[in-house]
Structures are given as C-alpha cells and as structure tokens.
Computed example of a mutant assay.
Amino acid sequence: MKMFIDPPAIYLHRDAVDFRKSIDGLVAIVEQELAHDAYTGALFVFCNKAKNKLKLLYWDKTGFALWYKRLEKQRFKWPSKVDRQAYSLTEQQLSWLLSGFDVIGHQSLNYQSLA
C-alpha cells in the first residue's frame, strides 16, 4: 500500500474491535489499552472479530483520518495467540498485511554488499 503519509510508527492492535467504533472510540483504545499518544502521527491498525475488515487510524496534524478496508472472500492474517497487546510494523509489513500475508514473525529482507 502506498500511502500519502509517512507515519513515524505503525502499530497493530491484537484484539478484535467492535467496528461500530469510529474515530473517538478507536482513539480511546489507543490511549487507554495501548498507552500510546494518538496525536503523534503514528498509524494504528484494528481488525474486526471476523477478521475480514480493517480500520487504520492516524492524526495528520489537522485531524484524525480513518481508513477502512473490507475483504470480500478471505480473512486477514491476524495474531491471536501471543502475549503482546500491540505490535510495531514496518510499512512493508503493513503492505503485506493488506495484501493478505501473515506478517507477525516475518521481517523484511535486508541486502548488503559483500565487497
């Protein structure tokens, strides 16, 4: 996913979220459950119980933006049996997640010259 923002951090919220929640409800989760400041510009990713919908929330210095994605026939690969409440993702991992890949436990490849 090529975004028009460059978030300083991307966080995935592990637990399913009631998708009737909108911006204010998701900001409350960010600040109370994740103990993060929602006004930093970081991107927060939430999933519904069926794991076929995502919401992405971030502050863009003028207000909150909320993105929504729904899969028609598949489910997002989402961590469920792990200890942490939130995960830090790279932009590449977010792109993989939005494309349907399992991103937890996988790191992007880094190449370097042998010379």
Results as ranks from 00 to 15, higher is better:
2 K>N: 07
2 K>Y: 01
2 K>L: 08
3 M>V: 07
4 F>V: 07
5 I>E: 01
7 P>I: 05
7 P>S: 09
11 Y>V: 05
15 D>C: 09
15 D>M: 07
18 D>W: 12
18 D>R: 09
19 F>V: 04
19 F>R: 02
21 K>W: 03
21 K>M: 13
21 K>F: 14
22 S>N: 12
22 S>M: 12
22 S>E: 15
24 D>G: 10
24 D>Q: 12
24 D>N: 15
24 D>V: 04
27 V>T: 13
28 A>E: 15
30 V>F: 03
36 H>Y: 12
38 A>S: 15
38 A>H: 05
38 A>T: 04
38 A>I: 03
39 Y>S: 05
39 Y>A: 08
41 G>H: 04
43 L>H: 00
43 L>V: 02
43 L>G: 01
43 L>M: 14
44 F>V: 00
44 F>M: 00
45 V>W: 00
46 F>L: 10
46 F>Q: 03
48 N>I: 04
49 K>A: 06
51 K>V: 01
52 N>S: 11
53 K>L: 02
54 L>F: 05
55 K>S: 06
58 Y>H: 15
58 Y>T: 01
59 W>Y: 15
61 K>E: 08
64 F>Y: 13
64 F>W: 08
64 F>E: 01
65 A>D: 02
66 L>A: 08
67 W>D: 00
68 Y>V: 11
68 Y>M: 11
69 K>I: 06
71 L>P: 00
71 L>S: 10
72 E>W: 06
72 E>G: 07
73 K>Y: 06
73 K>N: 13
73 K>R: 12
76 F>V: 05
78 W>Q: 01
79 P>T: 09
80 S>K: 12
81 K>Q: 14
82 V>P: 00
82 V>L: 15
82 V>K: 12
83 D>Q: 11
83 D>N: 11
83 D>A: 11
84 R>Y: 05
85 Q>E: 12
87 Y>D: 04
87 Y>R: 03
88 S>H: 13
88 S>D: 10
88 S>F: 08
90 T>E: 06
92 Q>T: 13
94 L>T: 01
96 W>G: 05
97 L>K: 00
97 L>Y: 04
98 L>I: 14
99 S>I: 01
100 G>I: 07
100 G>V: 07
101 F>H: 12
103 V>N: 00
103 V>G: 01
103 V>M: 03
106 H>N: 13
112 Q>H: 15
113 S>G: 04
113 S>M: 10
115 A>N: 14
115 A>E: 13
